[in-house]
Protein backbone atom coordinates (compact mmCIF):
# COMPACT_ATOMS: atom_id res chain seq x y z
CA UNK A 1 0.00 0.00 0.00
CA UNK A 2 1.62 3.23 -1.04
CA UNK A 3 1.45 6.44 0.91
CA UNK A 4 0.08 8.43 -2.01
CA UNK A 5 -3.03 6.26 -2.15
CA UNK A 6 -3.34 6.29 1.64
CA UNK A 7 -2.96 10.05 1.78
CA UNK A 8 -6.25 10.63 -0.01
CA UNK A 9 -8.15 9.21 3.00
CA UNK A 10 -8.79 10.57 6.47
CA UNK A 11 -5.73 9.80 8.59
CA UNK A 12 -6.36 7.44 11.51
CA UNK A 13 -3.92 9.51 13.58
CA UNK A 14 -2.94 13.11 13.11
CA UNK A 15 -0.61 14.78 15.60
CA UNK A 16 -0.47 18.55 15.17
CA UNK A 17 2.12 20.78 16.79
CA UNK A 18 2.58 18.62 19.88
CA UNK A 19 5.17 19.81 22.44
CA UNK A 20 6.39 18.25 25.66
CA UNK A 21 9.17 19.34 27.97
CA UNK A 22 10.74 17.76 31.04
CA UNK A 23 12.10 20.69 33.01
CA UNK A 24 14.86 22.10 30.82
CA UNK A 25 14.69 19.24 28.30
CA UNK A 26 12.60 19.92 25.20
CA UNK A 27 11.55 16.35 24.40
CA UNK A 28 9.05 17.35 21.70
CA UNK A 29 8.76 20.71 19.92
CA UNK A 30 5.77 21.35 17.60
CA UNK A 31 5.86 17.81 16.25
CA UNK A 32 3.53 16.72 13.44
CA UNK A 33 2.81 13.13 12.48
CA UNK A 34 0.11 11.64 10.26
CA UNK A 35 -0.73 7.96 9.92
CA UNK A 36 -3.33 6.48 7.57
CA UNK A 37 -5.10 3.13 7.68
CA UNK A 38 -3.19 0.37 5.86
CA UNK A 39 0.02 2.30 6.40
CA UNK A 40 3.22 1.59 8.31
CA UNK A 41 4.96 4.81 9.30
CA UNK A 42 8.47 4.44 10.68
CA UNK A 43 9.64 6.93 13.26
CA UNK A 44 13.42 7.17 13.43
CA UNK A 45 15.92 9.39 15.17
CA UNK A 46 18.93 9.38 17.41
CA UNK A 47 18.84 8.39 21.09
CA UNK A 48 16.87 10.98 23.01
CA UNK A 49 15.21 12.36 19.87
CA UNK A 50 11.81 12.10 21.55
CA UNK A 51 10.40 9.01 19.83
CA UNK A 52 9.31 7.19 22.99
CA UNK A 53 7.93 10.41 24.42
CA UNK A 54 5.74 10.79 21.35
CA UNK A 55 4.54 7.19 21.72
CA UNK A 56 3.71 7.80 25.37
CA UNK A 57 1.83 11.01 24.64
CA UNK A 58 -0.35 9.24 22.08
CA UNK A 59 -0.91 6.25 24.42
CA UNK A 60 -2.13 8.29 27.36
CA UNK A 61 0.88 7.59 29.57
CA UNK A 62 1.80 11.29 29.68
CA UNK A 63 -0.06 14.42 28.64
CA UNK A 64 1.39 16.81 26.03
CA UNK A 65 2.08 20.42 27.11
CA UNK A 66 0.42 21.70 23.96
CA UNK A 67 -0.81 20.50 20.58
CA UNK A 68 -3.71 18.48 19.20
CA UNK A 69 -4.16 14.76 18.68
CA UNK A 70 -6.82 13.75 16.14
CA UNK A 71 -8.21 10.27 15.60
CA UNK A 72 -10.09 9.77 12.33
CA UNK A 73 -10.17 13.55 12.03
CA UNK A 74 -11.67 14.18 15.48
CA UNK A 75 -9.62 15.90 18.20
CA UNK A 76 -9.40 13.64 21.27
CA UNK A 77 -8.13 13.85 24.84
CA UNK A 78 -6.26 10.73 25.92
CA UNK A 79 -5.74 10.91 29.68
CA UNK A 80 -4.79 7.32 30.54
CA UNK A 81 -3.73 4.01 28.99
CA UNK A 82 -7.35 2.81 29.35
CA UNK A 83 -8.56 5.88 27.44
CA UNK A 84 -6.11 5.06 24.67
CA UNK A 85 -7.35 1.48 24.52
CA UNK A 86 -10.96 2.68 24.39
CA UNK A 87 -10.01 4.96 21.52
CA UNK A 88 -8.50 2.03 19.61
CA UNK A 89 -4.85 2.87 20.19
CA UNK A 90 -2.68 -0.10 21.13
CA UNK A 91 0.96 0.30 22.09
CA UNK A 92 3.94 -1.96 22.67
CA UNK A 93 6.20 0.18 24.84
CA UNK A 94 9.98 0.19 24.57
CA UNK A 95 10.47 -0.62 28.24
CA UNK A 96 7.33 -2.69 28.31
CA UNK A 97 7.69 -6.10 29.84
CA UNK A 98 5.01 -8.68 30.42
CA UNK A 99 3.94 -10.17 33.74
CA UNK A 100 6.11 -13.26 33.85
CA UNK A 101 4.04 -14.85 36.58
CA UNK A 102 0.91 -14.87 34.40
CA UNK A 103 0.14 -17.00 31.37
CA UNK A 104 -0.18 -15.88 27.76
CA UNK A 105 -3.94 -15.35 27.91
CA UNK A 106 -3.76 -13.36 31.14
CA UNK A 107 -1.13 -11.06 29.63
CA UNK A 108 -3.05 -10.58 26.39
CA UNK A 109 -6.13 -9.46 28.31
CA UNK A 110 -4.43 -7.65 31.19
CA UNK A 111 -6.35 -4.51 32.09
CA UNK A 112 -9.16 -5.43 29.69
CA UNK A 113 -10.35 -8.81 30.93
CA UNK A 114 -13.59 -10.16 29.56
CA UNK A 115 -15.89 -10.35 32.51
CA UNK A 116 -19.27 -11.44 33.69
CA UNK A 117 -20.02 -9.22 36.67
CA UNK A 118 -16.62 -9.23 38.38
CA UNK A 119 -15.62 -12.79 37.46
CA UNK A 120 -13.44 -13.43 34.43
CA UNK A 121 -14.66 -15.38 31.42
CA UNK A 122 -11.59 -17.59 31.23
CA UNK A 123 -12.85 -19.92 28.51
CA UNK A 124 -13.84 -17.07 26.22
CA UNK A 125 -10.53 -15.26 26.76
CA UNK A 126 -8.58 -18.41 25.88
CA UNK A 127 -10.66 -18.87 22.74
CA UNK A 128 -9.98 -15.30 21.57
CA UNK A 129 -6.30 -15.61 22.51
CA UNK A 130 -5.92 -18.74 20.40
CA UNK A 131 -7.62 -16.98 17.50
CA UNK A 132 -5.33 -13.96 17.67
CA UNK A 133 -2.17 -16.05 17.90
CA UNK A 134 -3.40 -17.95 14.84
CA UNK A 135 -3.86 -14.67 12.93
CA UNK A 136 -0.25 -13.80 13.75
CA UNK A 137 0.75 -17.38 12.79
CA UNK A 138 2.83 -17.51 15.93
CA UNK A 139 4.63 -20.43 17.45
CA UNK A 140 3.54 -20.06 21.06
CA UNK A 141 3.22 -23.54 22.61
CA UNK A 142 -0.06 -22.89 24.43
CA UNK A 143 -2.11 -19.94 25.55
CA UNK A 144 -1.76 -21.31 29.07
CA UNK A 145 2.04 -21.14 29.12
CA UNK A 146 3.41 -18.72 31.73
CA UNK A 147 5.44 -15.92 30.12
CA UNK A 148 8.45 -17.00 32.21
CA UNK A 149 8.72 -20.10 30.01
CA UNK A 150 8.82 -18.21 26.69
CA UNK A 151 11.80 -17.02 24.62
CA UNK A 152 12.44 -13.32 23.96
CA UNK A 153 10.92 -13.62 20.50
CA UNK A 154 7.83 -15.39 21.76
CA UNK A 155 7.37 -12.72 24.41
CA UNK A 156 7.54 -9.98 21.79
CA UNK A 157 4.92 -11.90 19.80
CA UNK A 158 2.69 -11.89 22.87
CA UNK A 159 3.29 -8.15 23.33
CA UNK A 160 2.29 -7.52 19.71
CA UNK A 161 -0.66 -9.91 19.92
CA UNK A 162 -1.83 -7.85 22.90
CA UNK A 163 -2.39 -4.93 20.56
CA UNK A 164 -5.02 -6.94 18.67
CA UNK A 165 -7.32 -7.34 21.70
CA UNK A 166 -10.40 -5.21 21.28
CA UNK A 167 -10.63 -3.48 17.92
CA UNK A 168 -7.59 -1.25 17.51
CA UNK A 169 -7.22 1.12 14.59
CA UNK A 170 -3.72 2.28 15.42
CA UNK A 171 -0.79 0.22 16.69
CA UNK A 172 2.39 1.83 18.02
CA UNK A 173 5.49 -0.35 18.36
CA UNK A 174 8.45 1.18 20.19
CA UNK A 175 11.59 -0.71 19.17
CA UNK A 176 9.91 -4.12 18.98
CA UNK A 177 12.99 -5.79 17.51
CA UNK A 178 15.71 -4.24 19.66
CA UNK A 179 16.50 -7.36 21.71
CA UNK A 180 15.79 -9.99 19.07
CA UNK A 181 17.81 -12.39 16.92
CA UNK A 182 17.64 -12.20 13.14
CA UNK A 183 15.06 -14.99 12.97
CA UNK A 184 12.85 -13.47 15.62
CA UNK A 185 13.16 -10.05 14.01
CA UNK A 186 11.91 -11.49 10.73
CA UNK A 187 8.97 -12.94 12.60
CA UNK A 188 8.11 -9.60 14.19
CA UNK A 189 8.36 -7.84 10.81
CA UNK A 190 5.94 -10.43 9.46
CA UNK A 191 3.55 -9.57 12.26
CA UNK A 192 3.79 -5.90 11.34
CA UNK A 193 2.89 -6.65 7.73
CA UNK A 194 -0.01 -8.70 9.02
CA UNK A 195 -1.20 -5.66 11.01
CA UNK A 196 -1.12 -3.55 7.85
CA UNK A 197 -3.08 -6.20 5.93
CA UNK A 198 -5.69 -6.04 8.68
CA UNK A 199 -6.15 -2.37 7.77
CA UNK A 200 -4.54 -0.81 10.83
CA UNK A 201 -2.33 2.22 10.95
CA UNK A 202 1.07 1.28 12.37
CA UNK A 203 3.79 3.46 13.88
CA UNK A 204 7.10 1.59 14.01
CA UNK A 205 9.82 3.16 16.11
CA UNK A 206 13.23 1.66 15.41
CA UNK A 207 16.94 2.32 15.20
CA UNK A 208 17.39 -0.43 12.66
CA UNK A 209 17.14 1.17 9.22
CA UNK A 210 17.09 -2.23 7.51
CA UNK A 211 13.97 -3.22 9.42
CA UNK A 212 12.44 0.16 8.74
CA UNK A 213 13.09 -0.08 5.01
CA UNK A 214 11.77 -3.64 4.93
CA UNK A 215 8.29 -2.91 6.23
CA UNK A 216 7.48 0.82 6.27
CA UNK A 217 5.67 2.91 3.68
CA UNK A 218 6.94 6.23 4.95
CA UNK A 219 9.78 7.28 7.23
CA UNK A 220 9.53 10.26 9.58
CA UNK A 221 12.68 11.58 11.19
CA UNK A 222 12.81 13.24 14.61
CA UNK A 223 15.83 15.19 15.78
CA UNK A 224 16.14 16.99 19.10
CA UNK A 225 12.37 16.71 19.50
CA UNK A 226 11.60 18.33 16.12
CA UNK A 227 10.45 16.95 12.76
CA UNK A 228 13.50 16.66 10.56
CA UNK A 229 12.30 15.11 7.32
CA UNK A 230 9.66 12.85 5.88
CA UNK A 231 10.50 10.31 3.19
CA UNK A 232 8.75 7.82 0.97
CA UNK A 233 10.46 4.55 1.83
CA UNK A 234 10.74 3.43 -1.81
CA UNK A 235 12.56 6.58 -2.94
CA UNK A 236 14.90 7.39 -0.11
CA UNK A 237 18.59 6.52 -0.01
CA UNK A 238 20.45 5.40 3.07
CA UNK A 239 22.58 8.57 2.85
CA UNK A 240 19.57 10.89 2.86
CA UNK A 241 18.15 9.12 5.90
CA UNK A 242 21.40 9.21 7.84
CA UNK A 243 21.84 12.88 6.99
CA UNK A 244 18.40 13.71 8.34
CA UNK A 245 18.94 11.65 11.50
CA UNK A 246 22.34 13.13 12.27
CA UNK A 247 21.30 16.68 11.36
CA UNK A 248 23.39 17.17 8.23
CA UNK A 249 20.18 18.25 6.47
CA UNK A 250 17.50 20.57 7.80
CA UNK A 251 13.72 20.20 7.69
CA UNK A 252 12.45 20.11 4.10
CA UNK A 253 9.31 22.25 3.61
CA UNK A 254 6.51 21.55 2.94
CA UNK A 255 6.40 18.08 4.43
CA UNK A 256 4.80 15.37 2.29
CA UNK A 257 2.93 14.18 5.39
CA UNK A 258 0.83 17.35 5.22
CA UNK A 259 -0.59 16.49 1.80
CA UNK A 260 -3.64 14.78 3.29
CA UNK A 261 -4.87 17.86 5.15
Amino acid sequence: MSSTVAATRVPVLAIRQVSKRFGPVEALVDVDLVVHPHEVVALVGDNGAGKSTLAKVVSGVMAPDSGVIELDGEPVAIASPSDAHQAGIATVFQDYALCENLDVTANLFLGRELRERSLMRDGEMERVARGILRVLTSRIPSVRTPIAHLTAGQRQTVAIARTLIGSPRLVILDEPTAALSVAHTAEVLNHIERLRELGLGVVLISHNLNDVRAVSDRIEVLRHGRNNGSFDTRNVSQEELLAAITGATQVPEPRPSDVGR
Binding site: A97, C99, E100, L110, S118, L119, M120
Partner: peptide, 24 residues
Protein backbone atom coordinates in the same frame (compact mmCIF):
# COMPACT_ATOMS: atom_id res chain seq x y z
CA UNK B 1 -8.17 -17.09 40.98
CA UNK B 2 -11.27 -16.09 39.05
CA UNK B 3 -11.98 -12.40 39.65
CA UNK B 4 -10.53 -9.44 37.79
CA UNK B 5 -9.49 -7.93 41.12
CA UNK B 6 -7.49 -11.07 41.96
CA UNK B 7 -5.87 -11.17 38.52
CA UNK B 8 -4.78 -7.55 38.94
CA UNK B 9 -3.19 -8.30 42.32
CA UNK B 10 -1.03 -10.95 40.63
CA UNK B 11 -0.21 -8.59 37.75
CA UNK B 12 0.92 -5.77 40.04
CA UNK B 13 3.10 -8.14 42.06
CA UNK B 14 4.51 -9.70 38.89
CA UNK B 15 5.41 -6.48 37.07
CA UNK B 16 4.24 -3.15 38.41
CA UNK B 17 5.28 -1.20 35.33
CA UNK B 18 3.58 -3.56 32.89
CA UNK B 19 0.42 -3.58 34.98
CA UNK B 20 0.34 0.22 35.02
CA UNK B 21 0.91 0.57 31.28
CA UNK B 22 -1.75 -2.08 30.63
CA UNK B 23 -4.35 0.07 32.32
CA UNK B 24 -4.55 -1.82 35.63
Amino acid sequence: QRSVFGRHIYAIGGNLNAAQLSGV
